[in-house]
Design a protein around this nucleic acid. Structure first.
Lengths: 108, 108
DNA sequence: GGAGAAGTATGATCGCTGTCAAACTATGAT
DNA sequence: ATCATAGTTTGACAGCGATCATACTTCTCC
């Protein structure tokens, strides 16, 4: 079968919107994903996260994070990898991600 | 009539919860309130904010902000004044408020 | 005491979003 | 080809929260 490129839309930093970023980060599941990505330090497959929701719900959360500009996603085989867009985020909203991924903040 | 103290509950910094703070800040009206407080640099009466919602809705927003620990409220006559709890916030979630009230962030 | 000002409380509505189930697609291995 | 794996899509549902209107409370001032 002709390889159909599964393209994923990623916003440019110039198009990041605070409202959208906050809406993404207000959900505990999504914030946990960001935390795990940050703690790992490398890209993580969707299936390798510890998530307490159904697969299809997880897909939804990843989409919200991607469209807000928080993560970058790319396919490798049937797997989808996720990368934290820390540099882009830091550029547009300096200090925000750091404040939220701080170990102190994680506890609360 | 016997003066009934209108007491308002304010959480201690030790009891601040990130989830609650984010839920408070995700609403555009509430974030605008925080912005206006920060920009003013002094305490502001409820009625002196520029808010695009009904009075009773505003009361609701102030309550959410207060219970999350973002503002401190006190009565003066029939008016209620609002103070940004910047120091407390900075102590518990360093960098968060700064990141959100930055002029850069306000534009997005 | 009465009137007005400032804000609160309650109840109803309505839209949004997180959730799951089930069916589907795409890729890699046998 | 067949099958298994990884993730997506669609649809339905439930619960939450922002909103407003109305009625109420508390305080100030005359």
């Amino acid at each position: 079968m002709a390889a159909m490129a599964r393209t994923l839309h990623h916003p440019e930093p110039a198009d990041f919107e605070l409202q959208q970023v906050l809406e993404a980060l207000v959900d505990p599941v999504r914030r946990s994903i960001v935390q795990q990505l940050d703690a790992a330090g490398f890209d993580v497959k969707c299936g390798d996260f510890e998530i307490a929701v159904h697969k299809s719900t997880a897909t939804h959360h990843f989409k919200v994070l991607r469209e807000a500009g928080l993560i970058r996603q790319y396919y490798v085989g049937t797997s989808r990898f996720n990368a934290l867009r820390r540099d882009d985020l830091d550029q547009v909203f300096p200090g925000l991600l750091t404040a939220l991924t701080a170990p102190e903040a994680s506890v609360r």
